[in-house]
Design a protein around this nucleic acid. Structure first.
Lengths: 209, 209
DNA sequence: GACTGTGAAGCCATTCACAGCT
DNA sequence: AGCTGTGAATGGCTTCACAGTC
């Protein structure tokens, strides 16, 4: 466990900074200032410096940051200096789309398997993968050194699937189901609630009237 | 514009409370206390009461809240007392999945059209819908009274598509592309960044070591 | 002159604790 | 007695402003 607690918002921004830096590298930039990063991702320059300060001193006063160097540090901080194996449970529309989503692969998340309970889904080809039975969960997690589980089943089954994932040894869960899930303290949980997102939009639409 | 600024986090929780209340209604519950709601969705009871207090007094001291009544208030506050018409641009895996996603329909978001630029995608059937040309954007928005746009195109095209949506009259945008988008002040923007979510998981995984 | 790193100040959200109803 | 509604206290994130460095 790290000494200092890092704000969640900071971690999210680090991820965004790292993508911006990648872009700069592609464009052949050598150095970058906190102000440029700030402008590129829509935050304040003080925010950028504060975020980085949680982890050390990466820049040179009067100059800025070396793009490739800072990128490397951020990738390491985010734990993206190696691949993560992922398993998806729920081979509906969303789960299937995620299984084929290139954006994950690009950032080092490798989908090792996609599982479902429905007999009519099992066997379906999804790129390199094939939908397999949920009964395989434990084997798949063990054999593929899976750390991350993605839940894309209907709300009613979400908690059951989550419990099975935890039991199988998954250490982090990304939940797309519209359910508040309970997991042990040591398991990391994040929710991507599509309806909540749309409903926040809706709220803001009626407020702006 | 409303008199008071409501915290973003509060709005998100209202959405979650409303779903929990719906569940209680299904189970035939008549009244509910802030403590029960809190327990059901994983926050503190004071938090629930504070969140509701932004909008009025909905409960009865010593008793609690009438489930159906509170649900009705929340749906109204969230602007979910009527349907919202939605257009999706980007008929890749994710866009197609969202076009078919039942969860949106259940909460009153009706996908009116899905557009793409790729000739090989245009014409593809997606349930009731058929992928159409991006050139149709303006017509579709006008003819269908579309308020909400969903961006599921690759990063490189995201800003261009967004500009076109704004130009066409879309008032709120849900962005799934890994790009920081610029929109005019009066347009509501939300980002659902799948990679950021995975990367926050990754960060927490390495921290917990 | 330009830009980083950082203590201090300011701001906002959450939690506490209790008065006020039923 | 039980539970809501709310001012006050707390805690945490962001912004400010400037000393330090190149």
């Amino acid at each position: 466990m790290k000494a200092f607690k890092i704000p969640e918002a900071t971690v999210q921004r680090l991820s965004i900074y790292s993508r911006f830096l990648h872009q700069l590298m592609d464009e052949g930039e050598d150095t970058v200032s906190s102000g440029q990063i700030a402008c590129g991702v829509g935050v304040s320059s003080a925010q950028v410096r504060k975020d980085l300060a949680y982890f050390g001193e990466f820049g040179t006063r009067g100059v800025g940051y070396k793009v490739d160097e800072l990128y490397g540090y951020l990738m390491e901080i985010l734990g993206l200096d190696h691949e993560w194996n992922v398993i998806i449970v729920g081979a509906g529309k969303l789960g299937s789309a995620l299984a084929l989503y290139q954006g994950f692969r690009e950032r080092g998340f490798v989908v090792k398997a996609i599982l479902d309970v429905a007999d009519n889904k099992i066997g379906t080809k999804l790129g390199q993968l094939q939908v397999e039975s949920l009964a395989e969960l434990k084997n798949k997690v063990r054999d593929n050194d899976v750390h991350v589980g993605v839940v894309t089943v209907p709300a009613a089954e979400a908690q059951k699937v989550t419990d099975e994932m935890v039991e199988a040894g998954v250490k982090a869960i990304l939940n797309f189901s519209p359910r508040v899930l309970k997991v042990p303290n040591e398991v990391v949980l994040r929710n991507v609630d599509l309806s909540v997102n749309l409903e926040v939009l809706s709220f803001n639409l009626v407020q702006n009237k």
